[in-house]
């Protein structure tokens, strides 16, 4: 039997390794192109235009003008500073809390499920819910936090009246909300460390603290790096919790870059400037990812 044969499409009828690989990867590549590559490229494109839906004017190409405006925009700098502050506080905070939780969850409990469940619940909770719940916790009159402070003889704090206390409340909430995600990744990492290493260290004479520093921490490094990448990127995009807790107040002192992007694009319908802000956030995330990946590779 001879079929019409077009050598250009030979790999479709007789897929070798290469043809098969292309065919298997194509659906995913298409999907990623549609939902990641195209929107990002479109974002870059839009950021080069003066494109405000309220003006009634057609989009006008302005080059890098939007980025120039940003440099003179104090709100941009405030929200960027707030975002970086939340990132710098909550990422290490969640790492330490998550590590402690993972170490506890990895202990030989008779029943594992209550421990695992209590890890999962904060993670499964929507961010906005967490924000609303904690807004009540930190409520100056009815909040449980002030109630505890009073019982221990401290002055209650009016959390959402001062920038510093507002930011503190937000950071604590973010840490609570995100620690469990850290803990889950780190727990998975902990479970890949063979028990015999700890037994060997027991026999070698190392105590528990020494085992933590000499075995657990070094072998957990890849899991820590992965957790840090994910957590840092989501921290740079922090939106829901400050939005629901303080709406950026008092006086815009707790607004984040993501909230400012939202305000410009959704509230002000200024797509050009909003896109330019989003490009900055994208580049920031890329930078963090590249730095972490380099760190992992360098330590091999």
């Amino acid at each position: 039997m001879t079929a019409p044969h077009n050598p250009r499409f030979a790999w479709l009828t007789d897929p070798g390794d290469r043809g098969l690989a292309i065919m298997l990867l194509a659906p995913l590549a298409l999907l990623v192109t549609l939902i990641v590559v195209y929107p990002v490229l479109r974002l870059f494109y839009t950021s080069l235009f003066d494109h405000s839906l309220t003006s009634g004017l057609p989009p006008r190409f302005v080059g890098l003008q939007n980025f120039g405006l940003m440099l003179d925009d104090p709100t941009f700098w405030t929200t960027l500073k707030n975002t970086l502050l939340i990132t710098l506080v909550t990422v290490p905070g969640a790492l330490i809390m998550g590590l402690a939780m993972a170490l506890m969850a990895n202990m030989p409990f008779k029943y594992h499920w209550p421990v695992r469940l209590s890890l999962l619940i904060p993670w499964a909770l929507p961010l906005a819910f967490a924000g609303l719940i904690f807004a009540w916790f930190f409520h100056s009159e009815y909040g449980v936090v002030n109630d505890i402070l009073r019982r221990f003889g401290f002055q209650p704090v009016i959390w959402f009246n001062s920038p510093g206390w507002s930011m503190t409340a937000i950071c604590l909430t973010v840490i609570w909300k995100t620690s469990s995600f850290m803990a889950l990744i780190l727990l998975a990492g902990l479970q890949t460390i063979p028990r015999s290493l700890y037994e060997a260290a027991d026999v070698d004479g190392a105590g528990k603290l020494r085992q933590f520093w000499e075995i657990t921490l070094p072998l957990l490094r890849p899991a820590i790096a992965v957790a840090l990448i994910f957590r840092t990127i989501t921290a740079l995009q922090t939106f829901d919790i400050p939005y629901t807790m303080t709406a950026g107040g008092p006086g815009g002192s707790t607004a984040t870059l993501a909230m400012y992007i939202h305000q410009n694009t959704v509230s002000f319908l200024d797509l050009g400037y909003g896109s330019a802000l989003a490009v900055v956030m994208f580049l920031l995330s890329m930078l963090v990812t590249v730095l972490y990946l380099r760190m992992i590779r360098a330590r091999g």
Partner: peptide, 13 residues
């Protein structure tokens, strides 16, 4: 005492 484990239990790092 010193012990040699079945999977050797060498510290990989």
């Amino acid at each position: 005492i010193a012990m040699v484990f079945q999977d050797y239990a060498l510290y990989p790092h």
